[in-house]
């Protein structure tokens, strides 16, 4: 096929809302945008294991411990899934990991905040996974086939994550004064960072316009954020928790909740590596990788020996 025809085919598939598959021709920019976004998504799942693993050992009951382990295990699974989907674009998991470790690829800014109480496990499930679901439900319709299909599976598990988070919050607000205070303190710390998960305002987002045209992204940052706010505010009220925003108000005309201004300085600082725990998160990940080198080498050494044994047999 000549280059013009390939480009027209690509445009036609996008226009018809069909999926681009790994072997299809695609513009270099489409490929690199997808690699960036999918890698960032995979890295977020993997780095996101740390703030929750921080509470596994201290979980208050055996059942909560088991649920939290299962959740962190799902995150490792989602990471694997997304790395595999990214590998269909001709990049290896090891290479993506190197880019993460060296700070050249990002992960969601939310995971740079510390988890300081058990209520944070509830808030992460409720707000952070809740925000992720809003984003990921839309991504099920993304134009790249492997990414879209990975999202379908991941969304199912995420809804269990959000429900277990909300269940922790329900238990806390039904509990003692100390437990209620713990729940309020958690939403005070996590509310704004959760809103930042949707990224900068559309007017400041360098990737939005092109990603929307390619249907990688289907809804803009600001619209997704608004969907999340509208679904979450009533849940907070139901729990009897106060959202830490004095300007929060319901707009009767639009039917939406309006919020005060997000602290974009904090957002950009965290994205650029100067959030509360950016250095610790990457150091933890890099240490695990370095500590595991001898294990991976041992396994490869064993596999190589056994391949040569097979040949000689």
């Amino acid at each position: 096929m000549d280059p013009d025809a390939e480009e027209q085919m690509f445009a036609a598939v996008i226009a018809a809302d069909e999926k681009i598959e790994p072997r299809d021709w695609m513009p270099d920019g489409y490929r690199s945008s997808l690699i960036r976004q999918m890698a960032q998504h995979a890295h977020s799942e993997v780095i996101g294991m740390q703030p929750e693993a921080n509470w596994i050992l201290r979980a208050p009951t055996l059942l909560r411990k088991a649920i939290l382990i299962a959740k962190v295990q799902d995150e490792a699974g989602h990471g694997l899934y997304l790395y595999s989907a990214a590998e269909t674009l001709g990049v290896s998991r090891d290479e993506l990991q190197r880019l993460l470790h060296s700070g050249r690829q990002k992960y969601s800014s939310i995971f740079n905040y510390p988890t300081l109480s058990w209520a944070d496990m509830g808030t992460i499930g409720w707000l952070v996974d809740g925000a992720a679901i809003v984003n990921q439900i839309v991504l099920q319709r993304t134009s790249y086939g492997p990414y879209s299909r990975a999202m379908v599976k991941i969304c199912k598990e995420e809804s269990f994550h959000a429900r277990q988070g909300y269940s922790i919050m329900m238990t806390l607000v039904d509990g003692s004064e100390e437990q209620k205070a713990m729940a309020q303190d958690a939403i005070d710390r996590w509310w704004w960072p959760a809103l930042m998960m949707f990224g900068p305002h559309d007017s400041e987002s360098s990737h939005t316009e092109q990603s929307m045209a390619w249907k990688i992204k289907r809804i803009t940052n600001d619209d997704l954020r608004q969907m999340f706010i509208d679904q979450t505010v009533p849940q907070a009220h139901y729990l009897g928790l106060t959202i830490p925003d004095p300007e929060l108000a319901f707009d009767e005309e639009t039917g939406h909740w309006n919020i005060g201004e997000i602290d974009w300085e904090e957002f950009w600082a965290t994205i650029q590596g100067d959030g509360p725990l950016n250095r610790e998160r990457i150091a933890h990940k890099t240490k695990a990788w370095d500590d595991g080198r001898w294990v991976r080498e041992g396994a490869s050494g064993y596999a190589a020996k056994n391949r040569s044994l097979d040949k000689s047999a």
């Binding site: 596994i56 382990i69 490792a76 790395y83 240490k287 595991g292 991976r296």
Partner: peptide, 22 residues
């Protein structure tokens, strides 16, 4: 085993260790 989750040599092993802990 749960201490090791997020510290394994490969993601596959994080999954396995979490599974056994469970």
């Amino acid at each position: 085993l749960a201490e090791y989750i997020s510290r394994a040599p490969e993601l596959e092993e994080d999954l396995a260790v979490a599974n056994f802990a469970l």
